[in-house]
Write a protein that binds this DNA or RNA. Structure first.
Lengths: 261, 261
DNA sequence: CGCAGTATTGAAAAATATCAAGAGGGGTGG
DNA sequence: CCACCCCTCTTGATATTTTTCAATACTGCG
């Protein structure tokens, strides 16, 4: 219980109580950390894919460069996230990965995951839960891009980040850092940077979002969430206790049960 | 080797040679098949989630109803697909599921998956591979919706289906059935049904896609793929042999290796 | 001080949605 | 077999949203 510094372990612990053996296994996924610089591209779209990585410090994003020169940012990763699961079944990367901040990441090869499958049913289940949650994020982003106006998209994007940050513990009465340029935000939302700027201006006039360089302030998060038609189930509901095997198995009888409700 | 009728087993076999024991385990996921009718809603967005299901016959789609009355179709499922993984970590459904065709589906509870984790590392890895491939599809759809014109979106959508159908074996010189109305296609692509109609008309004039009710004909699939900026890696590359444990393990030494190249 | 990246604002253009009217097709009941 | 109706599709006119282009301002930094 002493090496709780690891964000991976903290992340996994959200889903299930871990045995010491499990923790030891997880620690192996964080061997050989590497310092990275802001803007550094960790891999390009067609690179060979035989590794995952975990992000220990800093933010990163996955992206795709389009034929017409534009770019789509697909996912935003924060400390504790596991990156590269998408390519488990693939030999090549399907998206690039770049650091936003300076940070620290740890690579580990695909077959290390096989060790986990072989050794710990608990960790396997938690991994599945993490992938499942990740897919929920992707789905929500898809809905956001396909069906909402520019205002709603931006509101949703900002509010999602705000919520994710709150979940990691840092309670921030509406203030937080968002180290993305308006162009990058546009790349994430499928909007031109010009329109992102206009939308921010509009939000400022409505007193919904105040942005000063990379510092954000939400005077009224509730209102922003409503504008975005934000349904937070996809972020919150996933922290329910998962079926765990280690020792106490009594949780497995009732079907699914929620933590707080 | 005699019960190869099961599409689940066929699907899994794409990734890895299966032991008889594995096949038996898989068969348990297809117990108690249920007949379903076209249009039938298998679950709604907020239903309790404690089951997956496999689709044995027919097509289905997942959807999300928006506040403004519109609807987003997220994924298209075909025989052999496993549905509902997204909610493994959740207590509620995040999207609805509806049948397009008459069909046959099989439910199985989440904890049945735990049996798989406990019993077969091979199947666990294949499951991961399937989820990974599924995530690749989602990602591609996201890029499609965020970054492409209506023409490209529709072209990409149609060509993806064409490719997926080809992969399941039915080689169809450009002819296939697409049992979706133009309104449903619009719901999938974030376009109005009117605009889908216009785009189809334009395709007909360009001799790219001929659609007659639910029958599609692609006189020149190549051209369509080019228009869509279609990169088929996300569909094809995933069939590489995955690290398998059963018996012959020699595949695990080299890092990742591709089947055909 | 000047420079490069970033943000703002206006005007015009392009893409897509909405509204509305009509056409075709297939099933059902008389 | 016909009439009718519902559903899907098509097409035109107009409205809205977002993009693009261009000019200018801001900011931190060497």
């Amino acid at each position: 219980m002493e090496q709780e510094d690891s964000c991976i372990i903290r992340l996994f612990s959200n889903y299930c109580a871990l045995s010491e053996e499990d923790k030891r296994l997880l620690h192996r996924l964080e061997e050989s950390p590497i310092e990275t610089r802001a803007g550094q591209v960790l891999w390009e779209e067609c690179d060979k894919a035989s590794e995952f990585c975990t992000i220990s410090k800093g933010w990163a994003y996955s992206f795709r460069n389009m034929d017409d020169g534009s770019r789509q940012i697909l996912e935003l990763f924060m400390p504790g996230d596991i990156v590269g699961m998408r390519e488990f079944a693939f030999s090549q990367r399907l998206t690039g990965l770049a650091m936003i901040d300076d940070g620290v990441i740890c690579h580990f090869p695909h077959h290390r995951l096989m060790d986990v499958f072989r050794t710990s049913t608990t960790l396997t289940a938690v991994l599945f839960a993490i992938v499942s949650r990740h897919q929920a994020l992707l789905t929500e982003r898809l809905v956001n891009l396909a069906r909402r106006s520019a205002q709603q998209r931006l509101a949703h994007f900002i509010y999602e980040i705000y919520e994710r940050l709150n979940q990691t513990g840092a309670p921030s009465d509406g203030h937080f850092r968002l180290p993305l340029s308006q162009e990058q935000i546009g790349d994430a939302l499928g909007l031109s940077s010009v329109h992102v700027s206009r939308t921010f201006t509009s939000f400022r006039k409505q007193h919904l979002v105040l942005r000063e360089r990379h510092r954000m302030h939400l005077p009224n998060p509730q209102a922003l969430a409503e504008l975005a038609d934000f349904d937070s189930r996809y972020l919150n509901d996933s922290l329910k206790p998962i079926f765990c095997d280690n020792g106490k198995q009594e949780r497995q009888n009732g079907s699914s049960n929620v933590t707080t409700e």
